[in-house]
């Protein structure tokens, strides 16, 4: 564990807490893509199967349990508790275009050809693009509540922190994880547009609005 990774994980944790807080306080999941949230559940469940057979650390264990349970809880909030506030008609990204290619990539690129390792690769590839339905929805509506943008910024920061973590681990431990690194760079790049608007508008006190 190094500071970059710790900051990354804490941003990830914060992003989820911000999202739950937004839904609870506004009593609405307006502006949140259900598809993206469902993809995150898929990501966590397919990646953290090692909870059952591999022990890393207490920290690792609790974080995994938290990510699986909180992402399922968010789906519950969106589909049950605040269902009327969820508008599927603007959440139109075709996720089969993400799931299919990620499955194929996982079959080609993995560290071992076992069910859990292929699922691990699949989860890494899927995570890198899971935010697309959300960004697509943002693009379509052209605006977002400020709290939603904080959620996205924390999620993007999590990915950004992992990059210096990998550089650090390369120098200090002489290990590199090519699958995680390449998809991590792709994932971070997807946030660049969003970050530009976030820094130039939201952090200056303006509303998040995309130029028409």
């Amino acid at each position: 564990m190094n500071l970059f990774r710790l900051f990354g994980d804490m941003s990830h944790l914060a992003s989820i807490l911000i999202l739950v807080h937004k839904i609870q306080t506004t009593r609405s999941c307006r502006g949140i893509s259900f598809k993206t949230q469902a993809l995150y559940v898929t990501v966590f469940v397919s990646r953290y199967l090692d909870l059952f057979y591999d022990w890393v650390s207490l920290y690792n264990f609790f974080m995994k349990v938290f990510f699986i349970s909180s992402s399922c809880y968010i789906l519950y909030l969106m589909k049950m508790k605040f269902r009327p506030t969820n508008d599927p008609s603007i959440d139109t990204f075709r996720i089969e275009y993400l799931l299919g290619p990620c499955a194929i990539l996982a079959l080609i690129f993995h560290y071992k050809f076992t069910v859990t390792e292929v699922l691990w690769s699949f989860s890494i590839f899927l995570e890198s693009v899971a935010i697309l339905p959300q960004l697509f929805m943002l693009q379509r509506t052209g605006e977002a509540e400020t709290i939603t943008t904080h959620y996205l910024a924390a999620l993007g920061a999590y990915r950004a922190f992992y990059i210096p973590n990998w550089i650090y681990r390369y120098w200090t431990e002489d290990i590199v994880d090519p699958i995680a690194v390449t998809s991590g760079i792709v994932q971070t790049a997807l946030y660049l547009d969003f970050f530009y608007v976030y820094f130039t508008k939201v952090l200056q006190g303006q509303k998040f609005e995309l130029p028409a």
Binding site: D9, D54, M63, Y111, I175, V176, D177
Partner: peptide, 10 residues
């Protein structure tokens, strides 16, 4: 460098 098969990252 070595690639790690042991997934210790989240």
């Amino acid at each position: 460098p070595e690639t790690h098969e042991h997934h210790d990252e989240l």
